[in-house]
């Protein structure tokens, strides 16, 4: 399927003289063709519309991708407990397990 799409692009470039300008733009990414304001990336010919399942697919594990936000939420939670206790007692304690409710 991918080969077919790439083939069509190449063929149309060769046949359609009027398409030369477009093909030049598409084959030479220069950052100037915008699909929407602030959104101007464009794939080179042959680059898949979706990278999932292609050789460009990084095949990330959703579990790994979620680890940072889980860690940040835990840090925010521990920080909040420290600040709440600090405000209540006037005494700062870092070790969350030493804080009493």
């Amino acid at each position: 399927m991918l080969k077919k799409i790439a083939g069509v692009v190449t063929l149309s470039c060769i046949i359609g003289g009027g398409l030369t300008a477009i093909s030049t733009q598409a084959s030479a990414y220069d950052g100037q063709t915008c699909v929407a304001p602030g959104n101007c990336w464009e794939p080179k010919p042959g680059f898949p519309a979706k990278i999932a399942g292609t050789k460009f697919d990084p095949r990330h594990s959703p579990k790994e991708l979620a680890k940072q936000s889980i860690s940040i939420a835990a840090m925010e939670d521990r920080n909040k407990k420290r600040v709440d206790a600090f405000k209540k007692t006037g005494n700062f304690v870092y070790e969350v397990n030493k804080l009493t409710d």
Binding site: A36, P37, G38, N39, W41, K50, I51, A52, P58, H60, P62, L65, A66, Q68, S69
Partner: peptide
Amino acid sequence: ATGKPVGADSSLKTWRGDEWKV
């Protein structure tokens, strides 16, 4: 760059899938 409001999902629409998480 455009002088206009960024619009909705100005970050997410410039990424594919969950790649923005990293």
